[in-house]
């Protein structure tokens, strides 16, 4: 039996006023796939990712995640979101809570886990992202890389079925990027379904099962990571990759 895709997007359109950012996106993501979305800035890749958990409301088209049509007005968006993990470029940790509290708060309030259960899970996850010493640190006391790893742990605590990474390493100092990519890579190896918007071509070619190249609101081409990055079919992809890789 073939499983239904975890994420299924059909003819997705999104406009901000006159600015037509997404122009008919079709994309399926199967369970366990790691899909990297690359493309020049302004190509709509972050908007696409943000549409997948409805942080942006699509102008047209459907987005089905785990069998629920999120664009249906009667869809329980909060329940759907709790199964979709999101990691932001700016981390967005809650600054008035410790690392542990950041990871516990949604477990307690959304999943109604007991305090003891939530803290146990939070401590295990902090250890998993290499931060077992930082339970009681406030976000302001952590480096960018540490904050982002706490943010990943916070998303994982909800037992998401799919994780969205929106340029998770773009706000980091170069020497801190590796530790975050390492956590993401180990997640991928554990079989997590992931959609990753990134500029890290190394990560894309090593970890992604598929690379999607977007430009001007459309998917220009997609395929196995090695093929898209080393032998792109489309001229636009080739140009973008030349610009990125020549740096």
């Amino acid at each position: 039996m073939t499983q239904a895709p975890v994420v299924s997007i059909r003819d997705l359109n999104k406009s901000f006023g006159d600015n037509h950012v997404l122009r008919g996106i079709d994309l399926d993501v199967e369970r366990g796939e790691v899909v990297c979305i690359i493309g020049p800035s302004g190509s709509g890749k972050s908007t696409l990712l943000r549409c997948i958990n409805m942080l942006e409301t699509p102008s047209a088209g459907t987005i089905t995640v785990l069998g629920n049509d999120l664009t249906d007005r009667d869809c329980d968006i909060d329940t759907a979101r709790s199964k979709i993990g999101m990691v932001f470029q700016q981390f967005n940790l809650f600054p008035h809570m410790t690392a542990l509290e950041n990871i516990c708060i949604a477990q307690r309030k959304v999943l109604k886990r007991s305090k003891a259960d939530a803290e146990k899970i939070a401590k295990d996850l902090l250890a998993r992202v290499g931060l077992n010493e930082k339970n009681n640190a406030y976000p302001g006391q952590l480096s960018g890389g540490q904050q982002q790893r706490v943010a990943i742990a916070r998303a994982l605590a909800m037992n998401p079925q799919v994780m969205l990474f929106d340029e998770a390493t773009s706000a980091l100092d170069p020497e801190l990027i590796g530790e975050v990519l390492g956590v993401m890579k180990s997640l991928a190896e554990d079989g997590m379904t992931m959609l990753v918007v990134t500029h890290e071509m190394g990560f894309a070619s090593n970890v992604a099962s598929r690379v999607v190249f977007m430009d001007a609101g459309v998917i220009v081409e997609q395929g196995p990571a090695k093929q898209v990055i080393t032998q792109p079919r489309e001229e636009r992809t080739r140009k973008f990759l030349t610009n990125v890789l020549e740096r």
Binding site: N53, R81, M86, F94, A106, A155, M158
Partner: peptide, 20 residues
């Protein structure tokens, strides 16, 4: 981003307002 992070964790608007 604070509201977005709270909502992306599955908190409803009132819950996110009150706790975050």
């Amino acid at each position: 981003g604070q509201m977005e992070a709270a909502r992306s964790l599955g908190m409803g608007y009132p819950r996110a307002m009150v706790t975050i």
